[in-house]
Computed example of a mutant assay.
Amino acid sequence: MEKLLHWSIANSQGDQQTRERVGQPDPKLLEQLFGTGPDEPTLMKESIVVITNPEADLENKLTAFDNFEMLIENMDNANNIENLKLWNPLLQLLESPETELRTCALSCMGTASQNNVKTQDDFLKYDGGLQKIIKLASDVNEPAEVRTKALYALSNLIRNHPASSEVFCKLHGLEIIPPIIHDAKANNKLKMRAISLLSAFLTSTSINETLMDLLRKEGIVESTIDCLIVSSDVYIADRVLNILAQMVTAKVQFTDGEKQKLQAGMQNIEPEKDRLNEDDLQTVKYVL
């Protein structure tokens, strides 16, 4: 920056000797300062070119992915993924042999679709897109970071989006939740993402006895209550309480077996009650 200042002063004063001594400023710095560089859609395309270039090394690909995700945090840029025809290369990256690239692709899908109906609509046009993500989320052979980002992407793709949630349900997406919750080897972050996925699904459907029958069939209700019994994570317990409170508020009927498990779960989290949402806690206690 100091070099640029000296060059600017010398240039304005016509001081050729000083200009030669200081030298030309960095073109990239001039682009940043005066906005003469590529626009953001171009930068997005350039990032994907690097990411999909078989000659680029992994470090450069990951840097390009960081830049791409930073750009699509802007909703207009996220919506441009469709306009620039970048969904297909992103979906193809879900099959990359590099764990980091699969993780980054999933993260970008989740970031782009967060609270963004147009991007959710756009993604749904791609046959097999949700199915690929569901497969990664459910695959116990995938690293935890891949599965966690897959759950993150799924949650944002279906939240408050009935059409995506319907496809997700038809693809048996709900089936991936109970095994994660019951997996003793799964870390709390992965389990939290699974619970968040259930929460996202509930935003797009009416909670009634028909839904409860479906959730029971998939083992969702039992595994959700089990979280209160087996989990020592207060954040997971708090999220589960919120889901259960929604069910209670919707006036669904819990079975005797569910109530017994719920009673055990409530006793287990009693020592942490001051750290839990009081309204949800009292609402769930109402059914006992």
Score class of each variant (00 low, 15 high):
E2F: 12
K3S: 12
Q13D: 04
D15R: 15
Q16P: 01
Q17I: 07
E20G: 09
R21H: 11
Q24H: 06
Q24D: 08
P25A: 09
L30P: 05
L30N: 08
L30F: 11
Q32Y: 06
L33S: 04
G35N: 09
G37T: 04
G37M: 06
P38R: 03
P38Q: 04
D39T: 08
D39K: 08
L43E: 14
M44W: 05
K45P: 01
S47G: 11
I48F: 12
V49C: 03
T52K: 10
P54K: 13
A56Q: 15
A56L: 04
D57W: 03
N60C: 07
K61S: 08
L62A: 05
A64G: 09
F65H: 03
E69K: 13
M70I: 11
M70L: 10
D76M: 09
N77C: 14
N77A: 10
N80G: 06
I81C: 03
I81T: 09
N83M: 06
N83A: 14
N88T: 15
E95I: 04
S96N: 08
P97F: 04
E98Y: 12
L101A: 09
R102A: 02
T103G: 00
T103A: 13
C108W: 04
C108I: 07
M109R: 05
G110R: 00
T111I: 03
A112T: 02
A112M: 02
Q114A: 00
V117D: 00
D121F: 00
D121N: 02
D122A: 14
D122V: 04
S138G: 15
S138V: 07
V140D: 09
V140C: 05
A144V: 15
E145T: 10
A150S: 14
A150V: 03
A153G: 05
L154P: 06
S155Q: 13
N156V: 03
L157P: 02
N160A: 01
A163I: 15
S164L: 00
S165T: 15
S165V: 12
E166T: 15
V167R: 13
F168D: 07
F168E: 12
C169M: 13
G173I: 06
L174T: 12
E175F: 07
E175R: 14
E175C: 04
P178W: 07
I181V: 14
I181F: 14
D183C: 04
D183M: 01
A184V: 11
K185C: 01
A186W: 04
K189Y: 10
L190R: 00
R193D: 01
R193I: 02
L198R: 01
S199H: 02
F201V: 03
F201D: 02
T203E: 00
S204L: 01
I207F: 03
T210E: 14
T210D: 15
L211W: 11
E218I: 01
I220A: 13
V221M: 11
T224F: 11
L228E: 02
L228V: 06
I236L: 15
A237C: 14
R239H: 07
R239Q: 15
L244I: 10
M247E: 04
V248A: 08
A250T: 13
F254R: 05
F254N: 03
T255Q: 10
D256I: 05
D256K: 15
E258T: 08
K261V: 02
A264I: 13
A264L: 14
A264N: 06
A264P: 00
N268I: 02
I269L: 12
I269K: 10
I269C: 12
E270F: 15
E270W: 06
E272T: 06
E272A: 13
K273F: 05
K273D: 02
T283W: 07
L288E: 07
L288Q: 10
